[in-house]
Design a binder for these strands. Structure first.
Length: 234
DNA sequence: GCGACAG
DNA sequence: ATCTTGTCGC
């Protein structure tokens, strides 16, 4: 966590927008790191009934992609889902899980966008600035921007444009499968981000760190719901 | 006013 | 994000 910044989560939508514009000034869109030895993937799952979120983060040795640690955290979501303000909904939970890690990752992969955002400051940028770490956004669908479809073959890319700026890269991670959106979060140049993401892919559409984190929190959520349902059923 | 809209 | 089984294809 960047000691200079204290997270400000409980804001009104209007204040949240101002916060994004304030933090945006701290973004570093170029490579600013030494060696990447540990990569972390994080994700959330949530139970609509209780508004409870299950956050999970898994740390891998890079480039081997061998898991060395995984942690989780559970808490109520306070902010509604508003396109463009995702970090204010998921940020508290992500901050909580990362605080539990023993191994400090050198690179963080976040589900969602970075620069490809209405105000050029998506959740990947937000978390990157707060943690003061190289961060990359891995989106499964588009929020803003325009692009051509990359060629059918795995490894093909197409630039993602928004407001005259190249904010990301559409990456085909598997032959003939729907591509993913790679966007800069913090301290990593776009071209570098694409290369790093490619090296985190192991044959599936979603890069291993985020894919495994997604599966992890899904299991946690269902496990918790199973217990809750049991109490009121028998 | 209409349509779009990460997770 | 979540609700959800089988099924078509490599």
């Amino acid at each position: 966590m960047n000691p200079q910044l204290k997270p400000r989560w409980h804001l009104t939508p209007r204040e949240a927008i101002r916060e994004q514009e304030r933090l945006r000034a701290r973004l570093v869109l170029e490579d600013q790191f030494k060696e990447i030895r540990l990569v972390a993937g994080a994700d959330l799952a949530f139970d609509p009934d209780t508004e409870t979120a299950f956050a999970g983060v898994i740390v891998y040795r890079f480039p081997a992609l061998e898991e060395i640690e995984r942690r989780s955290a559970r808490l109520k979501l306070q902010f509604p889902y508003v396109p463009g303000l995702l970090s204010f909904r998921e940020g508290p939970a992500l901050t909580a899980v990362f605080a539990r890690l023993r191994n400090a990752p050198d690179l963080i992969l976040i589900d969602g966008h970075g620069r490809a955002h209405p105000r050029l400051f998506g959740i990947a940028c937000h978390m990157g600035v707060l943690f003061d770490k190289p961060t990359i956004g891995c989106g499964k669908s588009l929020l803003v921007g325009e692009h051509d479809m990359p060629a059918t073959r795995a490894g093909s890319t197409a630039p993602l444009w928004y407001q005259g700026e190249r904010v990301g890269e559409v990456l085909r991670t598997r032959d003939g499968v729907k591509p993913i959106y790679v966007t800069v979060g913090h301290r990593v140049a776009l071209a570098t981000a694409v290369e790093l993401i490619k090296r985190c892919c192991d044959g599936y559409r979603i890069p291993k760190p985020t894919r495994e984190a997604d599966h992890y929190v899904g299991v946690l959520r269902r496990e918790h719901q199973r217990k809750a349902g049991r109490k009121t059923t028998d």
